[in-house]
Design a protein around this nucleic acid. Structure first.
Lengths: 343, 343
DNA sequence: TGTTCTACGTGTATCGTTCTACGTTTTTCA
DNA sequence: TGAAAAACGTAGAACGATACACGTAGAACA
């Protein structure tokens, strides 16, 4: 029914045409658009009717010039870890009834790329930014926060003032892992952590691991290996651990899919999981539940994290300035990969 | 050393300040920015120096008002399937040396959400759009293509004129699967396909499966089950297949992680893979290679698909109007989940 | 009836970039 | 050496939505 016709640019209807059609001023239409103060119900209805009739959609670029773009930026470390899908579900749920849209970018877990993605989100006038697993320094984050409302998921900095954080208690999560393994009879517990730019999540998990080991009187067995997120390197690091002089009888891996690879390597080396070696992951992603994996893992409620982060960033867009740090308790989900008894 | 100072809006440096600093006109700076015709090397160097000095970054909203935003939109069906990470790698490689940035959205495999995401990308003036696994009709896609350069990955429509497509030959892929299974001695081969809005990829794969079965003289054993992408439903559908009156001795699953769940259910039912039942996936994602899965799958070169799609969309942005349909041959990667001999 | 207040509408300058139309300088070639 | 063409640079008007500052009508109060 596009009777508008007038549309010059790509057939797009402008706010002017809506105003004309509804017989009101351009500014009145803008107010309806923004749910701003000073619009009667009658006028609102009239304007909405015209918008529907003409199929009007506000142009984000034009809005961005003076106001908001109603876009949030979400930066993921990578697309291979299904844990981020859980976070995304929470974000989408939080955005359900708002007029915000989320756009995602990938940082590939490097500060350089992350900076590039964040800068380009700022250039694109995103109203707020959610950063998952950031590897940037606090100063960088403060710089970003000075420009846009910022919430970091998976970044421990409880004294940060300029941006909010949303986390599970990673140190406690790692502690739960060690306690669980010790209770199951494992003693030489190694940890396989991520090599690369320092991340506060990982140092928290490593700290929790150390604390747990010391608490159990196993301080002498502390053994942290590091590997990049590349399969070849993970295999290499795992072989080194399992074929070394003092073979660990359990490996705590920093995330699930690394743990799955470790199971794979252990199996190929002729070791039985969980009898010869117990394996634990982190994030409790869906792959843990498959019978062939049955991987013990830590659940950190990704969906809740995403939901809270979104709430926080929108609150900041709406003017909140006091900082808020949200923390979820982790929960251990025991599966076959650590059940020595039944093995 | 931000000597600009003047910056009114959020301390942002504008093109005007760059021009002033470099002692040239605003339009000259714009030309440098766009690599446009009519700029001497000397001027270009001068302007670039000023941009670096002031830390200037063009504002996408302002660019969008008259020109391009240098942003591509990439729509993924979901974040749980690691196959899309491969495509993303290809996209990023193709964008390496350009000034384009990619922003991702999620369609959740439903036409309604997909439309919402695409519309919001058009509102945000993305210069081009890449759609993965679209479930929309050809008319919808034509409507989008009328507004923005469009490339569909994983959407078979060889007679489409308004947009390009990039695919692997899904029918042949499924054919390879059936031939491989038959050669390995399987006969009652079932297929587990996706339930939901019709997708051309799946109908191609189903077609290939049927053709393969008929070709092998197994037309009578054709058996296609459908299940949504929800674990509970996949489990239910798998049990129904494996506990039904005529138990298949092989199951071809439409994507890898569904196949992994099928292995899981089969194992829990006391069936041995591959002896009692052979399992095949599609996409050859990294999980296939894990020893505990060792899943036979079809490789469709996600990285290449992403690279080509990006090339095509940029070509369209630069003016190409003739349609191009790019097809990659699929390749079967045999693993233990179908090797009956050694089992 | 007049005054003040409040709720609601409107006109228009403005945001930062692109790009057209034109002006000026340099090069080419007979 | 002169004319034409090529190369380069500039001014300033758009683009579409926002939000400020203002205008107006009606209610409340005395």
């Amino acid at each position: 029914m596009a009777q508008a016709g007038e549309g010059r640019r790509n057939g797009r209807v402008t706010i002017r045409e809506v105003a004309e059609d509804a017989g009101v001023s351009v500014a009145a239409v803008s107010k309806v658009l923004r749910d701003a103060y000073g619009v009667s119900d009658a006028l609102r209805a009239k304007v909405r009717a015209s918008m529907d009739k003409l199929g009007y959609r506000p142009l984000a670029s034009a809005r961005g010039m003076r106001g908001q773009t109603y876009t949030l930026g979400l930066v993921l470390p990578d697309l291979r870890n299904p844990f981020f899908a859980d976070i995304m579900t929470g974000v989408n749920n939080a955005l359900e009834r708002t007029q915000y849209q989320v756009m995602m970018g990938i940082s590939a877990s490097t500060a350089k790329l992350e900076t590039g993605v964040v800068d380009s989100m700022i250039d694109r006038q995103m109203d707020g930014i959610i950063l998952i697993g950031s590897t940037e320094t606090r100063e960088s984050l403060n710089t970003i926060a000075a420009k846009k409302p910022l919430v970091a998921i998976g970044h421990h900095d409880p004294s940060a003032e300029a941006f909010d954080t949303v986390n599970n208690n990673d140190q406690q999560g790692a502690l739960l892992v060690v306690r669980h393994l010790v209770a199951a009879g494992y003693r030489d517990i190694a940890m396989l952590s991520l090599q690369g730019e320092p991340s506060s999540i990982l140092s928290e998990r490593e700290m929790g691991y150390r604390r747990g080991m010391i608490e159990a009187g196993l301080g002498g067995a502390i053994n942290i290996a590091h590997s990049p997120q590349i399969m070849r390197d993970v295999q290499f690091a795992t072989r080194r651990l399992l074929q070394g002089p003092k073979r660990p009888d359990a490996i705590f891996c920093w995330t699930d899919f690394i743990a799955l690879e470790v199971i794979s390597v252990a199996t190929e080396l002729g070791l039985r999981v969980p009898q010869d070696v117990g394996i634990v992951g982190y994030d409790n992603t869906m792959y843990c539940d498959f019978a062939q994996n049955s991987l013990t893992s830590i659940d950190q409620s990704g969906e809740l994290l995403g939901l809270q982060a979104t709430r926080l960033v929108i609150e900041r867009i709406n003017g909140r300035t006091e900082v808020e740090h949200f923390v979820v308790p982790p929960r251990l989900v025991a599966r076959r990969s650590t059940s020595r008894k039944e093995g």
